[in-house]
Design a protein around this nucleic acid. Sequence first.
DNA 1: GCGACAG
DNA 2: ATCTTGTCGC
Length: 224
Amino acid sequence: MAFAPVPEWTGDVAALRAVQDDLARQVVLKDAFPKPLRTVAGFDVGFEDDGATTRAAAVLLDADSLQVLETRLVRLPKRMPYVPGLLSFRELPALLAALCLLSVTPDLVFVDGQGIAHPRRLGIAAHFGIATDLPSIGVAKKILVGENTTTLHDMRGAFTTLRDKGAQIGWLLRSKAGCLPLVVSPGHRVAMATAPEMVMRFVTGYRLPEPTRLADRLASRRDE
DNA sequence: GCGACAG
DNA sequence: ATCTTGTCGC
């Protein structure tokens, strides 16, 4: 399985933004994944050596039992600095490498970060989806762009629209009472309305859904 | 010009 | 993201 190459960092921010605009046009916001789901996977990145090393984690789960079927970890040297809005060019290569190590291709992917809730509508989850053509959803812990609309009830499962320039770009989802809401947005091959319910389907007793929560622990070595 | 800014 | 202890509320 080969993917479209991720552009290298030359310092040319404008060039990467142009790439994002091109890829964003290819995003499909309609459900296009197998039903019922068989497997799902969570992805996240962490760092070592003061950021010199990138650690990407992939966790494959059974969609029904939520049992962990496989866990993968990849280390790659840093390729570029963190630039708000250009996160995917920095972390996607490592995530794709981790995906390649899975023995099974997941039916749906959850990525720690934004889906289309991005200035140019191409957060890392959307970029991941376009690069692999796999259905994807972005699960971020903070808003990058956009604003809340109505009040969010402090009840598990409550959600409100996240909009930017008048259009809805995602949701603020209270995955757990008493916790700050998650920023959920479709990445690729997933409809706006489907994203929050898919996330809640994998939330157990924590703020983060299992796929992302487990990948997060591995990538940030908060594991063991 | 000023502030904001996923991970 | 990462560096870090105790503390408050569900």
